[in-house]
Amino acid sequence: MQHYTMNLTLKVWRQRNNKDAGRFESYPVNNISSEMSFLEMIDVLNEKLITDGGDPIAFDHDCREGICGMCSMVINGRPHGPWEETTTCQLHMRAFKDGDMITIEPFRANAFPVVKDLAVNRGAFDRIIQSGGFISVNTGNAVDGNSLPIDKDMADEAFAAAACIGCGACVAACKNASAMLFLSAKVSHLSLLPQGKPEKKQRVVNMIAQMDKEGFGSCTNTYACEAECPKGISVVNIARLNREYLGASLSGD
């Protein structure tokens, strides 16, 4: 792999807090190595801003290995940037070339209010989980782990859904700011497993009610969420969610 350096112009969304209107500002960044991660490139800019007496760009990040789900950002119109199945922290500067202009915006959705600059509040996701995204089993109640054999394919499918990192890229990508992919991943993870079956009906009904309450839009099946999901969560999960919701509504009391 050939390494190279590049000079770029960043057009970054700056917003002091949730009450501020926000605007774009442009910053040149020079001598960026193709081996850097995207966030390391922003680190470079921030170090310069601080040294020059400016205000560094606030952004969320933590594990920087693509699993915690904390990093966000919409890069040139794409949540988590141009690479498929990649979080912003795993995006590397090889994806860009010298002279590029990169527009960086926060995840935009009314349900994700901006905290500052590129950092947003995704507490709505926690509240959706609180509304039913669990299996009710107190510590100490469990039987032996092998007492309940689970079809391997089923377990694998549940795992694929459980791989969701709760980053919110699906919401950011959706033209309706819908959280259906996030929701459906959790509903699928739990309802595919026999342990999750007893609470299947209330779970889906309560979680959808909470999603609607939080101010997310509804799903119009454009599947942009699937295309942008850094963990490749499939929209088949949304179909399953729809089916379960309809089933719960028709058979519920």
Binding site: V74, R78, E105, R108, S178, F216
Partner: peptide, 19 residues
């Protein structure tokens, strides 16, 4: 309703790449 869920629009759209 769906349009009202994102008050501040994106400056750059992902276009037809993802949908």
């Amino acid at each position: 309703q769906n349009r009202s869920k994102r008050s501040v629009k994106y400056a750059v759209s992902s276009g037809n790449v993802t949908s």
